[in-house]
Nucleic acid binder design. Structure first.
Lengths: 167, 167
DNA sequence: ATAAACTTTCAATAATTACTGAAAGTTTAA
DNA sequence: TTAAACTTTCAGTAATTATTGAAAGTTTAT
């Protein structure tokens, strides 16, 4: 496998993985492209490499910036805007975890809390609803806290100590 | 909020959360319905409650069974088939983590390993590709191992000790 | 063996989500 | 102030994904 093949394979795989971390294909591919680029890229560069339209590129870049994963770079003497992504995987994981927690997990935790707090009318079905949603609430909450704690540790602690801990 | 409202809110929220754990809306809603039901439900029951077609119900029940989350119950004297879901949230989390790892994470790890193992031709861009995909490979692998270890611990360890550990 | 009771399959269709491209908007240089 | 160079927006369209419903398949009771 040569450079070009490896690059394409990485971008397409990372793109289809988008769903796993909650973003769409183009967004994931742009991030992947920037992630392995040796320099910031312009919108033209991105459109060209990924064969996507200007509008699509613009919208997805904006979303990546909203997530805090991509930043606009001003290059002296250049009229165009250039973009680059966070290059440190640990920091990337931290941002993604934080955003997903905020956007998706926290709202669900809120609903679970509400639902599990309804008044117990003594019926079997109400008891079951309360019991099960309470258990789900506790689990989701624990997981959420844990994931955020984990990704907020520093690099050494995460890759070395933690892995050892769970061996 | 009364029982019916709480039930509907739970099912619809859990359904729209489907994407977070990688399954579709109907599938998540069927699981949610079974999760708070006090007894196994027939296909008719599910169709009726969720207002979905027979075909849809059949296909999604089959998928839930493939995941190992839902089981067919044979009730003596009944001609219909009845379905119930795993009621223990810890076990549920364990199964979901295992399946997602197998279906989605493992294949990506494989690609990352391949891509990060291409021959270094000495060029700057190849070096960057190798460096970045290697970092991603390590992170993904660590996360995958960790998540599986965590969900495979017993209940007490997970909810008590682990949470304390990361406080 | 037959038929009733039930489940599965799958082609057609609907719903959702992503993408394009051109017009409108913005910034910069002269 | 103008116009060239660039970015954003968004209505229309394409692609993808989910759902229906009816026909085919299966099981069970007689």
């Amino acid at each position: 496998m040569n450079y070009q093949e490896a690059k394409e394979k990485f971008i397409s795989t990372w793109g289809s993985l988008g769903s796993l971390w909650g973003i769409n294909k183009a967004m994931a591919q742009i991030q992947a492209l920037l992630f392995i680029s040796t320099k910031p890229l312009s919108m033209e560069d991105i459109m060209e490499e990924l064969k996507i339209s200007r509008g699509n590129t613009s919208m997805n870049l904006r979303q990546l910036m909203d997530w805090g994963i991509v930043t606009k770079e001003i290059i002296p003497g250049e009229r165009k805007e250039f973009f680059s992504t966070e290059k440190d995987v640990q920091e990337l994981a931290r941002v993604v975890a934080k955003e997903r927690s905020r956007r998706e997990i926290k709202p669900v935790i809120k609903v679970l809390k509400e639902v599990s707090s309804i008044k117990d009318d003594g019926s079997k079905q109400t008891k079951e609803l309360i019991k099960q949603t309470k258990a789900l609430h506790e689990l989701t909450d624990t997981m959420d806290v844990m994931i955020n704690k984990v990704v907020n540790q520093n690099q050494n602690w995460l890759t070395k100590s933690l892995l050892k801990l769970f061996k």
